[in-house]
């Protein structure tokens, strides 16, 4: 299982600034697999927040910086499906009029992976030796599911976590209402959506909800916390490393 492989971490701004433990557990998992980890310390953001709000010029600046920072990385792994989707599917639209940057963006798109996708599809592992006693349910993040087509991989990984029982929630594939700036600009709608999501989580009787995107999980955790719920919210890296 061990190799002289090295992966490069793209940690996502939310993880970097609010949930560093998610990146720490990712590193733990790779170390368990005997895989080296590097982390470019100039990285900041892939540009998605600017892009989603329509500020393409600003997004382009962030994207160029991102492309530069990760220029030499052979395999980049990220704990967020939406960021990987941004790079794979939207960077091209930022560089339509610049063939040089377009080429660099397309090249980058072929080297970047979401964490669970990387473990299952690239490394071919499903059992990371994790353990969690209790029931878990899983939330399908929109850009992970529909953007990059990752659906089975996290479930495979969860089924191999010792002590857990995976229970599917009603409408696991429904948006949780985060949507980046949407959650702040359209708070009533966002709140209504996350309330539905949380109800579906609670209805499973699960002890924890797991996901692959801290945007969604931050949103869900915020709601559960406000409701005084003791349901744990975990990124898949955290449950795999446990």
């Amino acid at each position: 299982m061990s190799s002289s492989k090295t992966v490069t971490l793209f940690i996502q701004c939310l993880v970097d600034t609010i949930y560093p433990e998610v990146a720490q557990t990712m590193v733990q998992v790779f170390r368990r697999l005997g895989i080296g980890v590097t982390c470019p310390t100039d990285q900041t953001c892939c540009g998605q927040p600017a892009f989603n709000s329509g500020y393409r010029q600003s997004a382009r600046v962030a994207a160029k910086h991102f492309i530069e920072v990760f220029a030499d990385a052979e395999q980049i792994v990220c704990p967020s499906g939406s960021c990987v989707n941004m790079v794979r599917h939207h960077y091209a639209s930022l560089f339509q009029n610049d063939s040089r940057w377009l080429q660099r963006a397309q090249n980058l798109a072929g080297r970047i992976y979401e964490f669970s996708e990387y473990l299952v599809d690239v490394l071919g592992v499903v059992d990371l030796g994790g353990r969690f006693d209790g029931k878990v349910t899983y939330h399908d993040s929109c850009h992970l599911l529909r953007g990059i087509g990752v659906q089975e991989q996290p479930r495979k990984l969860l089924r191999h976590v010792l002590g857990t029982e995976l229970i599917e929630m009603h409408n696991s594939d429904y948006c949780c209402g985060f949507g980046g700036a949407f959650s702040v600009k359209y708070p009533d709608i966002s709140n209504a959506m996350v309330s539905d999501k949380v109800k579906n989580i609670i209805d499973t009787g699960a002890d924890a909800v797991v996901g692959c995107d801290m945007g969604c999980l931050m949103n869900i955790q915020g709601k559960l916390s406000r409701m005084g719920s003791s349901i744990k919210v975990m990124h898949i890296a955290q449950i795999l490393a446990s």
């Binding site: 993880v15 590193v27 959650s183």
Partner: peptide
């Protein structure tokens, strides 16, 4: 303009130290 979030949800505050900062310091992972 962030008050919309906290109308119905709590928020985790920024971590004491960002992951990158920790990485730079070479913090040992258990």
């Amino acid at each position: 303009p962030m008050h919309g979030w906290t109308k119905g949800r709590d928020l985790r505050p920024l971590a004491k130290e960002s992951f990158v900062q920790g990485w730079k310091k070479g913090i040992k992972i258990r």
